[in-house]
Amino acid sequence: MRLPCPLCGDRDRREFYYQGAAVTLNRPAPEADADAWDAYLHLRDNPAGETRDLWYHEAGCGAWIMVTRNTLTHEVLGAELIEGVPA
């Protein structure tokens, strides 16, 4: 599998570290109720189809990226730097 790092171009999967679903970017407000924090920390979807997840280009440029890919076809649709994603 190759991932399209926005800085480095297409690179081998072994250069990357997988972090998980990109929902962790949507952090609840500090005063949000327990349910919101419970969902943020523990509840994950398991979508069949397009997903977005976080990868760390560990052995490459050191950037965190958000990769869009399809879990049904294994197609990698794109990636963007986390730096550029609005919080």
Partner: peptide, 10 residues
């Protein structure tokens, strides 16, 4: 230039 792996090494 590139940052990558060579064997197991960055």
């Amino acid at each position: 230039t590139a940052r990558s792996v060579l064997g197991q090494m960055p």
